[in-house]
Design a protein around this nucleic acid. Structure first.
Lengths: 337, 337
DNA sequence: TAGCGTTTGCGAAACGTTTCGACCCGAGCG
DNA sequence: CGCTCGGGTCGAAACGTTTCGCAAACGCTA
């Protein structure tokens, strides 16, 4: 019994007589044999390990990011792959070079992709297989899974239009250096503008809030200067808290006097509000899963070199809560009731 | 220039003449040489990879769990190690056997440890180095980092005693099959009872709620049957939502009529409430970091075999919000104001 | 029965390191 | 001046697989 025969039998690399194979498999199971991944990887260059590259939590990691990671890990696991957690502290490219240089990693899954992302350039140049959760400004030729912001915005606008609203304000993240180049921040605002335009809804897009106080201030400004606004979509959870607080202070109520939408936030979070907020829940688990699958598909040897990159957009799920209602009467004058 | 000399120079395994070393280092940097981890691991049995084993999100992963993972990854990264994400779907022991059998993993970091955990038994029996975030019922001889529930409960009880309260109700997780054997669930309840006893505070411990509705029901029961209770500590975020709702329905207010404490929840979450809740924030990042460090220390060859397992308890941080206040007057009769 | 193609098993090389005993050379000691 | 000791270097073996060229055995056909 030569080792090479065993290898062939266990991997199905070459045909092995049924009887021999059976004998080998029996013995293997009997001895609890596990092929050594290192030795295998050393010669075959296939380790079955993918790296999940994410920036060290600047912004504070949310449930959404966690979902990416766990669902990607699960998808990888199902395909016989492992997922290596790679926080990049300061220099992402150095981290990448380190990872890919030591022969441990077969491919990279990129999280928190920015509109212009040096990691992408590096990976393309290095020829390392990778895919993204999110996408760059011009993601041609690269596999990615991202939110379908256009469809999401349409769904949201349709929802409020269906309730009778004619104006919508969008409270985006604060335009600091980070958010300004962060895909969801930019694309969401753009697509809400487009969707509102398509449906003939008046749209206020240049509002920003990332904290309770800013949320409160934003709503107070709205109530004073734009009393005709009857629906607000908010990107940041804490900003929503502020809006709700300001609404209550004014003696108004949700949804009677204001329809509030939480954008890109989980149902889990939306349920913590009172009233329970209507939310556009990002398909985090699916994106993580898709990203991992795409990468793995790329790695399959039979895929050949002529593989087309897969690019997939998934819309958020609109979960209607208790914060959606028809516009208050007399909205044009700004006086509730 | 023999390869063995290069190896020695780069690893500092054996003394190498300064001149030779310099020459080697120069050449290495020049060529961008990266030692192949697989080849290294194959012979040295040291791969620099740790597995983070966590159950596939039954209960829904929270921010806390995410913190464990990211901070552990960061600590590992600082020490030159990598962290492999290993969701165990159904059979944790099979997953473990698979992981440790293929020579990829140097040690295992266990998350979500239960009071009786088969994974622990398996790892001990197999002699695999590991450490835990959390702990079993009898964790003698095993490295772990866990919450100091006793100190946490003392802090909490001192806090409410300092405000003048004499009774405390504890709303635990529902005693389903899972929670009943889950460390924090059990230990928190126990230690709150102890701390309350020590401070002469009357303690109601057999209340449970894991949802908005259950939280609401629990508070309504309390208001009816135990109007003398002026402070409530809640384990579950959603239950807290329910309690707040029920308090409002009754025309009561927080903190004037009820002091509410969120137990084992992040400030991030506590801030989403109105009023901002006082919370006992678990030291998630520190636990993740400690767990990883402990495991890595265990793996250092110079640690010898006589290494004592490190066991470390870290208390939660009490963050006082707007939900803490003196007991309402007339509490003994149950009539506010 | 000789010739030929096909199926199946074998052995050796290679992957890129670490490890370890052997070896070389100069300095210190008797 | 010869011997020893020790710092420094070298070469070969080993780690556990996969891969690939070869050869043996077998069943057909001519």
């Amino acid at each position: 019994m030569a080792v090479s025969t065993v290898s062939a039998a266990l991997n199905g690399t070459r045909p092995v007589a049924a009887a021999t194979r059976a004998r080998i498999e029996l013995a293997a199971a009997d001895l609890g044999y596990r092929p050594n991944l290192l030795a295998r990887g050393l010669v075959s260059k296939r380790t079955g390990i993918l790296a999940l590259l994410y920036p060290a939590p600047n912004r504070g990691f949310g449930l959404t990011e966690m979902q990416f990671a766990t669902s990607a890990a699960e998808a990888a696991s199902e395909a016989g792959y492992h997922l290596l957690l790679s926080p990049d502290k300061s220099d992402p490219v150095a981290e990448l070079r380190h990872l890919t240089g030591v022969g441990l990693i077969e491919g990279v899954l990129l999280m928190e992709v920015r509109l212009d992302d040096e990691r992408v350039d590096h990976l393309v140049a290095a020829g390392t297989p990778f895919s993204m959760i999110g996408r760059t400004r011009q993601p041609a030729g690269i596999s990615y899974a991202d939110i379908d912001f256009a469809a999401t915005a349409r769904d949201a606008v349709d929802h409020i239009v269906g309730l009778g609203h004619r104006t919508l304000a969008f409270l985006n993240h604060s335009p600091d250096a980070y958010a300004a180049l962060y895909g969801p921040t930019v694309r969401c605002a753009e697509e809400f503008a487009v969707a509102a335009g398509d449906r003939g809804v008046e749209y206020l897009g240049d509002l920003h809030a990332d904290s309770v106080e800013q949320g409160r201030a934003a709503f107070e400004w709205l109530a004073t200067n734009r009393p005709d606004v009857t629906a607000v979509a908010v990107m940041n959870d804490h900003a929503a808290v502020g809006v709700l607080g300001a609404v209550a202070d004014r003696g108004w109520r949700v949804p009677e006097d204001l329809t509030l939408l939480l954008v890109l936030s989980s149902v889990e979070v939306a349920r913590m509000f009172h009233p329970r907020l209507t939310t556009l829940e990002p398909p985090s688990a699916e994106l993580g899963r898709l990203g991992a699958r795409m990468l793995i598909d790329q790695l399959q040897p039979d895929a050949g070199e002529g593989k087309t990159p897969r690019q997939q957009l998934v819309p958020c799920r609109l979960v209607v809560g208790e914060s959606s209602g028809p516009p208050r009467r007399g909205a044009e004058t700004g006086v509730p009731e």
